[in-house]
Design a protein around this nucleic acid. Sequence first.
DNA 1: TCATATTAACCAACCGGTTAGTTAGATACT
DNA 2: AGTATCTAACTAACCGGTTGGTTAATATGA
Lengths: 207, 207
Amino acid sequence: MTKEKILDAAEGIFADKGFDGAKVQKIADAAGVNKAMLYYYFKSKDDLLMAVIGRFIEGIRDSIPQHFAAAGDTARSIETFLDFYIGYLARNRAFVRLMAWELLSGKHLDAIAHNYIIPTFGLMRDKITEAISTGAIRRVSPEHTIFSVLGMNIFYIVASPLFTLILGDDPLTPEMIRKRKQAVADLVMNGLVPAELRRSAGDKRDS
Amino acid sequence: MTKEKILDAAEGIFADKGFDGAKVQKIADAAGVNKAMLYYYFKSKDDLLMAVIGRFIEGIRDSIPQHFAAAGDTARSIETFLDFYIGYLARNRAFVRLMAWELLSGKHLDAIAHNYIIPTFGLMRDKITEAISTGAIRRVSPEHTIFSVLGMNIFYIVASPLFTLILGDDPLTPEMIRKRKQAVADLVMNGLVPAELRRSAGDKRDS
DNA sequence: TCATATTAACCAACCGGTTAGTTAGATACT
DNA sequence: AGTATCTAACTAACCGGTTGGTTAATATGA
């Protein structure tokens, strides 16, 4: 129980302030426990952060593949995944921010990449490669496409305060998320679906 | 001279480690000056960071509009801008990272947004709105499109260590940047250019 | 009683920021 | 010209407060 309270508090504060900005005393306060308890359950601040990230990844990893397993034709299942993805990130905002902080600091990137990012990336790449081979989508670079989709979605979550500042609206309300889903799926799919399948012809660009 | 040395050193370290991770003594060491000099020229660590960001924005702001002013038809000028944009970010990697740190911490976001982001955003939105009204591109949401493009490009720069980890290559070499330009322009333009102009028809999605 | 859980008090290192004082060169006065 | 004065640039040493982390003593409960 105490351990979970610590992890919950640490999750919020690490996500908010980043590793260097997060102070151990503040985490203990937020958890309502004595600071020494953090060192009873975790061997360092660093270890605590990794435990927070580890818990997130554990709770997520198994649910990821099922979102690639969706319905029949490949283009449609990519669209389904896109539709699911931003909502998923919006629901796990703390995790997205945690990953963003780590991406910038680069301190634990190896461990995270090995345990989470690389496997997920692999699943996505397989799906896209398959969709290309069946002719469901155009001959794009799978790697760049994945990075583009990740960027579009992750940036939207991370930059949400900026969105508010520019447009006034809160970009994380359900309707705004719904609109974002539509916008991204529209942009991506119209870039991926070959012109022929859209009752059209030519396209001059090389891959 | 000393002031510039401090700003240069601070730029590198702030971009690398973020505000909380950057230590004043390390900046002084990197600049090869006494720590007290930072407080002779700047009134606080915070003020120093703002000076670094201010210098960047000053050097950049005036050169932005010219990249929207490009050649005749609007769709083409958007493509030109896309082509220029990633290269520009890759050349100003430190600035991109600085902005990313600030985006996460949110500490000075108001000032930055007011001086830089909002005006630039406005230019982009005007261009897209114009392109829509002339029929050069489809009726997409300008705001979401901008966020998508920003995300695709900024994420590529910020996540470049991840790219290296996954694929082995350094994603910031000139050829890799060139490939990225192509991939992004291809994805975005094929999503933006109306099907009719690509010798095709239908498209059922609403805006 | 014995392991687990919890605490107050403590510590060395470090942090951002200050201070009192030095240096070297320009300025002003005789 | 010579010298007293001023000032911008610079420094070593220091300061109060904070930080991540430890410890020894204590409570709890099977």
